[in-house]
Computed example of a mutant assay.
Amino acid sequence: MAAPVLVLRTAAGRSWRFTLADLRELPAQHLRTTLPAALGLAGASDWEGVPLSRLVALTGATPTTLTLTALNGYSVAVPAQDLARFDPVLAYRRDGHEITVRDKGPLILIYPFDRHPELNRQVYINRTIWQVHEIVLE
């Protein structure tokens, strides 16, 4: 049995565990965008993953903030309004290939930088967190 790559928790203590196979079974979203140079992933890429809003909808929760935590303990707070406004994707593939831990995977939160020029600010660059393994809905 595959190990979970993502744990999703609510403030009330309910939790869900997802393997990569579980995430791939959910309806995927494709996004082509160029990330800001500060993120170290040069050039335009085709990203595939689950819209963060879809994962939240699975829980039935209505959070105001999502705290995403990386494998190294780094965490970011993402306002829930970002989900409706920008529809960021929790990507597990880049250019058709699964994203390895070495390449900042297995999950990276990707904003559609090319569609929304206002995302090219440090606050959104900071929210583009890689190696996501836990999300807490608050």
Score class of each variant (00 low, 15 high):
His97Pro: 00
Phe86Tyr: 15
Thr128Met: 00
Arg17His: 13
Thr10Arg: 01
Gln131Leu: 03
Arg127Leu: 06
Asp103Gln: 10
Pro51His: 10
Leu20Gln: 13
Thr100Phe: 11
Ala42Gln: 15
Leu107Met: 09
Leu66Phe: 06
Ser45Phe: 04
Thr128Ile: 01
Phe113Trp: 10
Leu90Lys: 09
Val5Pro: 06
Ala37Cys: 02
Arg121Phe: 05
Tyr92Gly: 02
Leu137Glu: 05
Leu107Ile: 08
Pro106Phe: 01
Lys104Trp: 04
Ala44Cys: 07
Pro27Cys: 12
Thr64Val: 12
His30Trp: 11
Ile99Ser: 07
Thr100Ile: 08
Trp16Ser: 06
Val5Cys: 03
Glu118Trp: 05
Val123Phe: 01
Val76Ala: 06
Pro4Thr: 13
Arg54His: 13
Gln81Ser: 14
Pro27Val: 07
Ile108Glu: 02
Leu41Pro: 04
Leu23Phe: 10
Leu66Cys: 09
Arg24Trp: 04
Ala37Pro: 02
Leu68Glu: 01
Gly73Arg: 13
Leu119Lys: 07
Val101His: 12
Asn72Phe: 06
Ala3Trp: 15
Ser15His: 15
Ile135Cys: 04
Thr19Ser: 08
Leu20Val: 11
Met1Ser: 15
Trp16Pro: 11
Ala38Trp: 06
Asp87Tyr: 15
Gly40Ser: 10
Ala37Ile: 12
Thr62Asn: 11
Gln81Trp: 14
Arg54Asn: 12
Trp47Gln: 00
Asn72Asp: 15
Pro36Trp: 03
Ile129Glu: 00
Pro63Tyr: 00
Pro88His: 03
Ala21Pro: 09
Ala80Val: 07
Ala28Thr: 02
Arg121Lys: 08
Arg14Glu: 14
Glu134Met: 12
Thr67Lys: 07
Ala80Leu: 01
Val136His: 03
Ile99Trp: 08
Gly40Glu: 14
Ala61Pro: 10
Ser75Asn: 10
Leu109Trp: 03
Leu119Tyr: 02
Ser75Tyr: 01
Gly40Cys: 12
Thr59Gly: 14
Arg17Met: 06
Tyr111Arg: 07
Val50Cys: 08
Leu83Glu: 04
Leu23Tyr: 09
Tyr92Arg: 15
Asn120Met: 09
Thr19Asn: 04
Asp46Lys: 06
Val7Leu: 05
Ala80His: 05
Leu41Gln: 14
Pro36Thr: 08
Arg17Pro: 08
Ser45Asp: 09
Ala70Gln: 03
Glu25Thr: 10
Val5Asp: 01
Thr34Gln: 07
Tyr111Lys: 05
Gln81Asn: 13
Leu41Lys: 05
Glu25Pro: 04
Ala2Trp: 14
Ala42Met: 14
Met1Gly: 13
Asn120Ser: 09
Leu39Gly: 10
Leu23Asn: 09
Pro51Gln: 14
Ala21Met: 10
Arg121Gln: 12
Leu90Ile: 04
His30Arg: 15
Ala11Ser: 14
His116Lys: 03
Trp47His: 03
Asp95His: 13
Val76Gln: 10
Leu39Phe: 06
Ala2Pro: 14
Phe113Lys: 03
Leu83Cys: 09
Leu137Phe: 08
Asp95Gly: 12
Val89Glu: 00
